[in-house]
Amino acid sequence: MILKHIELYENKGIAKIILKLQNFDYIINEQIIRELEKLCEILSYDDKTKVIVITGEEEHFCIGSNLQNSSYSNMRISNSIAKITKPVIASINGDAIDQGLEIALACDIRIASKNARFGFESLKNDIAPWDGGTQRLPRIIGLGRAMDMILTSNIINSKTAIKYGLITESIEFNELNSFVFDIANNIAQLGPIACKYAKEAIISGLDMTIDQGLKLEGDLNFILQTSADRSEGISSFINKTTPNYYGK
């Protein structure tokens, strides 16, 4: 796949996506959306990819979107990210505003540099969040805080974002890449099918009763027992060796 506005680095099961937004004032456009959409689909089915990292250039993540000559439906990307069955980490190296924040919300783990800021400013232009922000933000930080962030258009810093549970870590900018790589590398060593099913159980369980969620958890674990990776995991534990997982 030819990428013009995105850089992709693959190493030891980690796929790192860099949004090249510098020439667009760190605002995402439809060309970048189409590339990212296709890349999400490819990586989701690539057996060599165990974990995905999404980040921006230099000290900038994404501060919004260019809706000129584009409809909302053509610019939505968060669902493509959220549907990836593998763990996805947002390495937020700068401000995540409007659709930039919605992209981060679609990821499973969010780690940010200490200089990063977060919020929705589009209401100042009479535009409500439209790429999943109104749905994912309250599920992550709670209804009250989500209402406050969206309806006031207040921008919060990384310290407040940790307090809210929006991000899990706030790291010095020059240490962010190595910190995120260590986490991604740790995930890449885990059983890929187990990671996939754990993610499915967590996300799907949010829309279920506790009993339904427990049944799903049990069903997925039952399926997991029949996988070759599960046998490899048991064998490596008994023999005290490093497991070689193949996602099968």
Rank of each mutant, 00 (worst) to 15 (best):
E121Y: 10
E121C: 11
S122I: 03
S122R: 09
K124C: 06
K124N: 13
D126K: 15
D126P: 05
A128L: 15
A128T: 14
A128P: 11
W130N: 15
W130D: 13
D131N: 08
D131Y: 07
G132R: 00
Q135A: 14
R136Q: 08
R136Y: 10
R136P: 05
R136E: 09
P138V: 03
P138Q: 06
I141F: 00
I141R: 02
G142C: 07
L143F: 14
A146K: 01
A146I: 00
M147H: 12
M147S: 13
D148K: 07
D148G: 05
M149F: 03
L151C: 13
N154E: 13
I155L: 10
I156L: 07
N157C: 03
S158I: 10
S158D: 08
S158M: 09
K159H: 12
K159N: 14
K159D: 15
K159G: 13
K159L: 09
T160R: 11
T160N: 09
A161Q: 06
A161V: 05
A161K: 04
I162A: 04
I162L: 10
K163M: 08
K163R: 13
Y164K: 07
G165Y: 02
L166I: 05
I167H: 08
T168N: 10
T168F: 07
T168P: 03
E169N: 14
S170T: 02
I171M: 02
I171V: 11
I171Q: 01
E172D: 09
F173K: 05
F173H: 12
L176S: 06
L176R: 00
N177R: 06
N177A: 11
S178A: 11
S178Y: 10
V180W: 00
F181G: 00
D182N: 14
D182Q: 13
D182A: 13
I183Y: 02
A184T: 04
N185D: 15
N185S: 15
N186L: 14
N186M: 12
N186C: 10
I187F: 00
A188R: 05
A188C: 05
A188I: 05
A188L: 09
A188H: 04
A188S: 08
Q189T: 13
L190E: 14
L190H: 09
P192I: 04
C195W: 01
C195D: 09
C195E: 11
K196W: 04
